[in-house]
Design a binder for these strands. Sequence first.
DNA 1: GGTCTATATTGACAAGCATCTATATAGTGG
DNA 2: CCACTATATAGATGCTTGTCAATATAGACC
Lengths: 116, 116
Amino acid sequence: MPTMVSPSDPDIRLLQALADPVRLAIVRQLGGQPEVCACDFTSCCDVSQPTVSHHLKVLREAGVVEAERRGTWVFYRLRPEAASRLQRIASVIAAGATATVPLDPARSLPVLQPQA
Amino acid sequence: MPTMVSPSDPDIRLLQALADPVRLAIVRQLGGQPEVCACDFTSCCDVSQPTVSHHLKVLREAGVVEAERRGTWVFYRLRPEAASRLQRIASVIAAGATATVPLDPARSLPVLQPQA
DNA sequence: GGTCTATATTGACAAGCATCTATATAGTGG
DNA sequence: CCACTATATAGATGCTTGTCAATATAGACC
């Protein structure tokens, strides 16, 4: 029986980092390019520079992206671990959904009752 | 070049539904069982019944779970599409992260400059 | 050093969301 | 019908988070 999930749970951190329209747009742009300069996020994000910077910070701290400074420019790229971490969460869902598939058509089986 | 992501984007809906400690705890519990009665979510979620119900509604509307009423009881289970949807997002991240791997060790290659 | 561009940080504010109490709704049984 | 249990909904409230303007910091160049 799973216990309470803490707000600082790594999965929560990851999901919350991705669960914002601006940040998802950033991630999608990074998904199609090896890396992107911070200055080039203007077209995906119709928000101010400080807001972009703030979002990039959230993504960094959640382990979704990493940054590399080259002179005055800062380049961002996605971290492979973020993909595998999200994959693992998807697997949990798949496992539960898979377990229900046999029960779905077999409606004649005994119906589960709430635990006593 | 990706455009802005809308708050109603299906991926955002999915991620936001998962990005809450209580809801992730619910999903994790469902991940280990074929289905769970609404009345049995008490141990994973140290919140009131109406709050559990509210969270279950969010998950339903985001397409993460589906509900089935049997008499006075309501049973919930995970939807397979939620797993594949999350998988697809993970793939976007993996694609971007993979594209950066060759560049990582090849630091002697010409350095990307911000787009003009 | 000063000046400039790029980017991160700070602080205020508004909007959105999680939570609860109270209550409505759904379903069962007599 | 009534009484009961299970669960969803409504509304109020407090907290969190996204946003911006202002500013600090980082780096390059003279």
